[in-house]
């Protein structure tokens, strides 16, 4: 059994390597993904080993990257596209929403467009503007796309394998502030299905739902709450489209309280969707309204105040207290 301890960025790198190695149709495309290995070094060494034809440095044009990836997918390739930063995806948004998401349906299922779009997302790294955003809801809102976000190395590795194997377009959001967090990866494991949530910590008093970078924050909050005698369950959603509502429902039926945590603004965010659907599913189990902790309806703020904008331990625990007060 091959168990390695890898940071998330390296787990993604190994996963890409495995995909390139096992499927000659897999391509890696993006800005600076070649010699540089990407601005986060996620694709480090791949071009050296697989060549410029398979690990492709593209012109600096996001719509062009995704648009040509669609064409390559129509030709039978499985492109894995890197968008350099969350805030840079919007030039490609038209191709993703108007073309990529709809093509399978428009052809009455006759063609498939298995494109994976990797996007490092979220804040907490002290970056300049357009480098810290969380646009996952803008993609989850679009039928035809699947949206996932791993929180740890093992999921980063396996969910990318599954995303590449999927015949659907998958937007794969990488928690860039957690890139260097290490975790065990068993490369021989039989992974959980891609679109299943995972209970990251069991608890009985309230449920925290998070994905990507906020899972760690919620686990820290749960640990802190435990010291105060509160038992919090943490559900790592893993997949934002589709959402594993059965898993969230099961947890809420147990705890009676739900707080959804994400970096993205709460307004029209994934937390709003979860709150609505869980209220429908668990109306008679809920002891308190579903609460959300997330970004404000404001442009992502300058780095010097981003810690005030981002959900942290205290804001999560504050929401827990408010929930428990009902």
């Amino acid at each position: 059994m091959a168990v390695k301890k890898l940071p998330i960025a390296k787990a993604i790198n190994e996963s890409l390597r495995r995909a390139l190695d096992t499927d000659p149709k897999v391509l890696v495309m993006g800005e600076d993904v070649g010699k540089l290995g990407g601005v986060f070094r996620v694709t480090d060494g791949l071009q050296k080993d697989f060549g410029e034809d398979r690990v492709i440095d593209t012109p600096l044009a996001e719509s062009g990257i995704v648009g040509t990836a669609i064409g390559l997918a129509l030709r039978g390739y499985r492109p894995v596209v890197e968008i350099q930063f969350d805030g840079f995806v919007f030039p490609a948004y038209d191709q993703i929403v108007t073309q990529l998401a709809k093509m399978h349906a428009r052809a009455l299922g006759k063609i498939k467009v298995p494109v994976v779009i990797r996007i490092p997302y979220g804040g907490g790294i002290g970056a300049v503007e357009h480098h810290s955003e969380s646009p996952e809801s803008l993609f989850a809102h679009v039928a035809g796309l699947k949206v996932v976000s791993p929180s740890n190395s093992s999921d980063a590795y396996w969910m990318l394998q599954q995303a590449i194997q999927s015949d659907d377009p998958v937007i794969y959001f990488e928690p860039k502030r957690r890139y260097w967090d290490k975790g065990e990866v068993n490369t021989d494991a039989i992974p959980d299905p891609l679109h299943k949530a995972r209970t990251a910590r069991e608890g009985t008093d309230a449920t925290l739902v998070a994905y990507g970078p906020m899972v760690k924050t919620c686990l820290e909050a749960a640990a802190a709450a435990a010291e105060e005698g509160k038992s919090l369950e943490v559900v790592d959603l893993r997949t934002i489209s589709p959402i594993d509502f059965d898993a969230v429902q099961a947890s809420v039926e147990k705890t009676g309280r739900l707080i959804v945590v994400h970096e993205a603004p709460t307004f029209f965010g994934s937390g709003a969707e979860i709150a609505a659907r869980i209220t429908e599913r668990c109306f008679y189990h809920l002891e308190a309204p579903v609460l959300r902790v997330g970004g404000f309806h404001a442009p992502y703020p300058p780095a010097r105040v981003e810690e005030d904008y981002l959900p942290g331990l205290d804001r999560v625990l504050d929401a827990v207290d408010r929930s428990l007060a009902y």
Binding site: G67, G71, R75, Q99
Partner: peptide, 25 residues
């Protein structure tokens, strides 16, 4: 013969990607 494309110009990128794939093949 790919599907008709209504949003103007989008298909030129698909065509280019498809051609890149043909060349790779």
């Amino acid at each position: 013969f790919q599907l008709y494309t209504i949003v103007i110009g989008s298909q030129t990128l698909h065509a280019t990607g498809y051609a890149m794939g043909m060349a790779k093949d």
